[in-house]
């Protein structure tokens, strides 16, 4: 089983954030979640490209403050971009306006390009801030923080179970893969491969269902009655106040600039 492996190995849930104290780490996760949401709302309401660039730079600065590893963080950002890249590429062709050039008779417009750039800047600024502020929270603490922020309990429990079992499932998957490899399985583009991978996924599902039943049994044995008490103790401190003031100041400045230009 997965628990045979030592406790020091990296897990799927590692945030990549340093465990020692950083400027961002000092701040209560609830403050960080609320700050990230406020930032997203403000950035979405901005339109000036120069101010949006400023917001993106602010996101980069937060990433450096949280001391997230730059390369892997930016790679995650690019992964998010790949979801919207087609929309961004199509926008110049779908927004009416002054013609920039044509492709196969379809005109691309300056107005469309501007919108694409605007959306790209907004999305990346928000995702960077989200990763710097919320992504660096240890998942269990994130669950506690959401619970204390009065998120629906069912969603928090879902997150907590995910946190708890994603690693167990991954270990199970890796063991099955090793077992396949040990018997000479080499994936290729053929029927045998797809059938074997189908069995693998099916087996994982069956095992997950069986495990969930055993977990429910174990919970019942300890008097489970529908609610899971969460104990984490979070407390706002002075640094939260300073952070809220500073962060609020930046947001206010972004909004003020938008009104001025």
């Amino acid at each position: 089983m997965g628990h045979v492996v030592g406790s020091g190995r990296p897990t799927l849930l590692d945030t990549g954030a340093p465990e020692d104290r950083t400027l961002i780490n000092e701040i209560d996760p609830r403050t960080r979640i609320l700050a990230a949401i406020a930032f997203a709302v403000v950035v979405v309401s901005l339109h000036d490209l120069r101010i949006l660039t400023g917001a993106l730079l602010f996101g980069l600065a937060l990433m450096l403050m949280a001391r997230l590893p730059t390369r892997s963080t930016l790679r995650r950002m690019v992964t998010m971009d790949s979801f919207i890249v087609f929309m961004l590429l199509l926008l110049p062709f779908t927004v009416p306006g002054d013609e920039m050039f044509t492709v196969f008779g379809f005109p691309a417009t300056w107005q469309g390009l501007r919108q694409a750039v605007e959306i790209g800047l907004k999305a990346n600024a928000i995702i960077l801030t989200l990763m710097a502020l919320v992504g660096s929270v240890e998942p269990v603490r994130l669950g506690h923080a959401l619970y204390r922020l009065k998120m629906p309990e069912a969603l928090v429990y879902l997150l907590m179970f995910m946190v708890r079992y994603v690693d167990v499932l991954q270990q199970e998957y890796l063991r099955l893969r090793v077992a396949m490899k040990a018997r000479g399985f080499r994936p290729g583009n053929n029927r045998h491969t797809y059938q074997s991978l189908g069995y693998l996924i099916g087996m994982m599902l069956v095992r997950a269902v069986e495990r969930s039943e055993r977990i429910l049994g174990a919970m019942k044995c300890r008097g489970f009655s529908g609610g899971i008490p969460l104990l984490g103790d979070l407390a706002y401190t002075g640094s939260d106040v300073y952070f809220a003031l500073g962060f609020g100041g930046v947001l206010a400045a972004l909004l003020a600039l938008q009104f001025l230009v």
């Binding site: 997965g2 269990v140 708890r164 167990v168 495990r211 977990i215 919970m219 899971i228 104990l231």
Partner: peptide, 15 residues
């Protein structure tokens, strides 16, 4: 792993 479903040891024992 079936039995320890809470994120932290204290929570699991307190459950």
């Amino acid at each position: 792993d079936d039995q320890l479903f809470c994120p932290t040891v204290a929570e699991d024992v307190a459950f």
